[in-house]
């Protein structure tokens, strides 16, 4: 059974404009891997109709899972008003996870904006493998950073960029990543974030021969590969972001521009 009655434990804002929900959902927490997602039904009625997909932000051994979201429409507005104790229907874990095993010594984790949602679970998992982790995190405004102290104390090398603010580089995260990339030949890259950033990353890594995995975001209806709504061209084939991804080889994704 992959459908869960997830009990909301807590809802808070780790940073302005970013909402975090913490659910008790032991099966889901135990079985989720970084990069996978959960399809949440935001209401018991049929309007808004469709589930919303959310990357799994973190899981904990006490059977809780966290998701992050921004309030962007009717569905997320309803979610933001959900009170602790309420149970939401979640399908998951869905999709294919990042491959964190392998013969690389350094992980380059690159996140832009809400790409931080899957990045944290990825970092949690990588920390257990003993690999060294460089986290390149770019946001619009520097008040969107959170958990920086925890990241530093965990031994993660932080590289920050914001378009507005005083924390880290003033500009795009790709600005600081590009000149640094060749320092880590024995590494593997993981990237999640907005499409323009992913396209830029794809151009940047042409001359940097390490494997790069990307987690794509797309609007979805079913989340399990039946409606064929979230198509993307990867390599020569049409793939579904929900069931063939959301993690793909960054070099193979056709961003259609």
């Amino acid at each position: 059974m992959k459908q869960h009655r997830m009990r909301l434990i807590e809802q808070n804002q780790p940073a302005p404009g970013i909402m975090r929900m913490i659910f008790k959902a032991p099966d889901l927490a135990r079985n989720s891997r970084p990069g996978q997602f959960v399809q949440i039904r935001v209401t018991d009625t049929f309007d808004p109709l469709l589930r919303r997909p959310f990357s799994i932000h973190r899981t904990h051994s006490n059977g809780t899972i966290e998701i992050l979201y921004r309030i962007v429409g009717r569905g997320t507005r309803l979610m933001s008003r959900t009170r602790p104790g309420v149970r939401l229907d979640g399908m998951g874990p869905l999709g294919n996870p990042f491959q964190t095993e392998g013969n690389f010594s350094t992980a380059l984790v690159v996140a832009g904006g809400m790409g931080s949602a899957p990045a944290f679970m990825l970092i949690d998992t990588l920390l257990k493998t003993g690999k060294s982790i460089h986290f390149f995190w770019g946001v619009r405004c520097d008040d969107e950073f959170f958990h920086l102290e925890w990241l530093r104390s965990s031994g993660v090398e932080l590289h920050l960029a914001c378009e507005r603010g005083d924390t880290g580089h003033q500009g795009l995260i790709t600005d600081i990543l590009e000149p640094m990339m060749n320092r880590y030949p024995d590494s593997k890259g993981f990237v999640c974030g907005p499409k323009p950033m992913l396209e830029k990353m794809q151009r940047m890594i042409r001359t940097f021969p390490i494997p790069w995995e990307v987690s794509l975001e797309e609007k979805m209806a079913c989340g399990v590969g039946v409606c064929m709504g979230c198509a993307v061209r990867v390599g020569q084939k049409i793939q579904m972001v929900c069931s063939d991804g959301p993690v793909f080889d960054l070099r193979e994704v056709d961003f259609g521009s």
Binding site: D47, P48, L49, G229, I238
Partner: peptide
């Protein structure tokens, strides 16, 4: 059939639009 170009689904009030194109 590969189906139609993206985007090919959209949510509307109490419903959804699709233009999958028989993929």
């Amino acid at each position: 059939r590969e189906g139609n170009p993206m985007p090919r689904t959209a949510e509307t009030f109490a419903g959804m639009l699709n233009s999958i194109g028989l993929a």
